[in-house]
């Protein structure tokens, strides 16, 4: 029986054994990025937790005190420190936290959320492996996204600090505008390679001088 128990591993070993969904594209992202114009990279293994809880219940308020608030409207992002909560639906939220917050690396975020929910009505699910994160930055990043996204991405409509579920290149993603010229894109893991290649293709024209 003793052999069936999982061997104790250190956080470093856990991390070194993991392969991120777009790892095969790491070199392509580096060569395809155009410094100062538009740059693409993958942020690996962010901790993500799916929350389903009503904001106005006791459980919702306990969870809000752990995450630093739950967003009330479509597009809103709340949170404290480096933990952010994205609005996905009236009773559905996505917590995005750094890699170190995951329990396999010694973090306690998910456990704290589970304890906050306790026996309240709702769900706390570790979704860290569900999606990966692309970061698209640079003055041309909006132009790249506009090739395959039907949202109005103009800054007058889509403000920094908002996140919306939408489709980019026909891939369902959560698009989070983290700064005036930086976006985080959360595609599901199985779509990551396709979307990575799609974005690289969309970025290619900006590597050449503009044709007047």
């Amino acid at each position: 029986m003793a052999e069936t128990a999982a061997p104790k591993t250190s956080p470093e070993t856990n991390l070194s054994l993991r392969t991120s969904p777009a790892a095969v594209l790491r070199a392509a992202f580096e060569t395809g990025s155009v410094p100062g114009t538009v740059e693409l990279s993958e942020i690996t293994f962010l901790t993500m937790v799916g929350l389903r809880v009503a904001r106005d219940t006791d459980a919702g308020q306990r969870i809000a005190s752990v995450t630093g608030g739950l967003p009330a409207t479509c597009g809103a992002v709340s949170g404290s420190g480096d933990t952010s909560v994205l609005w996905l639906g009236p009773e559905e939220f996505l917590v995005v936290a750094p890699l170190e917050a995951h329990e396999s690396l010694g973090g306690d975020l998910i456990q704290a959320l589970r304890e906050a929910l306790a026996d309240g009505e709702g769900q706390v699910v570790d979704l860290s492996a569900n999606r990966t994160t692309f970061e698209l930055t640079g003055p041309r990043s909006r132009a790249v996204l506009e090739k395959g996204c039907s949202l109005d991405l103009h800054p007058r409509e889509f403000k920094a600090g908002t996140a919306l579920s939408t489709e980019i290149g026909n891939i369902p993603v959560v698009l989070w505008k983290t700064g005036e010229e930086s976006f985080r894109i959360f595609p599901r893991a199985s779509f990551a390679e396709f979307l990575g290649r799609w974005l690289l293709d969309a970025m290619r024209e900006y590597a050449s001088p503009e044709v007047p």
Partner: peptide, 13 residues
């Protein structure tokens, strides 16, 4: 005509 719709890519409601 009254019909049902699902916002499947957005709020899923």
């Amino acid at each position: 005509f009254a019909e049902r719709w699902l916002h499947s890519t957005g709020c899923r409601q």
